[in-house]
């Protein structure tokens, strides 16, 4: 057990270094969302409620997490194509240890994202500060699980060239189907039902409700939380199965 934890720690440390030493990952996971948070607030917060910081900052946190799937997937796809993963598979490390070492180091990264975007949001609009902010930061760890699971799944299926395209679809879905950029009132019932059935809007709503107040506990907290956890579990189960299958090949 101790040796297993030591291996997970060593592999996790390596995976963090591989991600943060890539300037593109920092630009997309931190720079771009931060730029969008400030720009959209400054441009639109007086015209539309949607862009007030209490809505925008939680939305940006989840949006930035969508990029985790791209960079986690890219790392795994590269490790597969360069045979590093195959080689490590001859070592004492098990496939579960590999998966944990890809997933766990992403959690501190997502924590940094949440803290940064909420802090910047709070500086721009001090009304954001309060006891709900640390709670939202902690819940951000849960919303990130879906994207981490999808990243491991993409990385296990795709090669290094196709991973960008596939992950972009997920990022676009988070952007367009979360309702963070436009009010959903004007949309048709079918579209809203679809958005409610998918994880993207539920993740954003969970974060926004944490800042705004949950209201009805079922619709404000438990429903989006359970839907999100179900998708996260499905993503991780598929990721583990596909990863193990690919390693055996």
């Amino acid at each position: 057990m101790r040796k297993s934890l030591a291996r997970i720690y060593a592999l996790s440390k390596r995976n963090v270094k591989e991600i943060v030493r890539d300037p593109l990952s920092l630009i997309f996971m931190i720079g771009l969302p931060l730029f969008m948070e400030i720009l959209f607030y400054l441009l639109f917060h007086k015209q539309t409620d949607q862009f007030e910081m209490k809505y925008l900052a939680p939305g940006i946190v989840v949006f930035s997490q969508a990029f985790l799937s791209l960079f986690t997937g890219q790392l795994i796809a590269l490790d597969r194509s360069s045979s590093l993963l195959t080689r490590l598979y001859v070592s004492r490390a098990t496939s579960v240890e590999f998966i944990l070492s890809y997933a766990l180091p992403i959690l501190p990264l997502t924590l940094i994202q949440s803290v940064l975007f909420f802090l910047v949001g709070g500086i721009v609009d001090p009304g954001l500060f309060g006891w709900r902010m640390p709670l939202a930061i902690l819940l951000g760890l849960i919303t990130s699980l879906f994207f981490i699971g999808m990243g491991i799944l993409f990385g296990s299926i795709c090669n290094e060239k196709s991973i960008g395209g596939i992950a972009s679809i997920l990022i676009a879905c988070q952007s367009l189907l979360s309702g963070m950029w436009f009010p959903t009132e004007g949309l048709g019932g079918g579209m809203v039902a679809l958005m409610n059935a998918l994880p993207f809007r539920n993740a954003t709503q969970l974060m926004q409700n944490t800042i705004l107040g949950f209201g009805d506990a079922w619709s404000g907290f438990w429903r989006p939380m359970l839907i999100l956890l179900a998708y996260s579990l499905a993503a991780f189960v598929c990721a583990v199965l596909v990863f193990k299958k690919k390693m055996k090949q």
Binding site: K3, R7, Y9, A10, L11, E18, L78, T86
Partner: peptide, 21 residues
């Protein structure tokens, strides 16, 4: 060639040594 590309040579050796226990 199968190495961790963004790690230094020393870090690569350390990684494999830790995996070996």
């Amino acid at each position: 060639t199968a190495v961790a590309r963004k790690l230094t040579v020393k870090e690569n050796v350390e990684l494999f040594a830790r995996i070996a226990g």
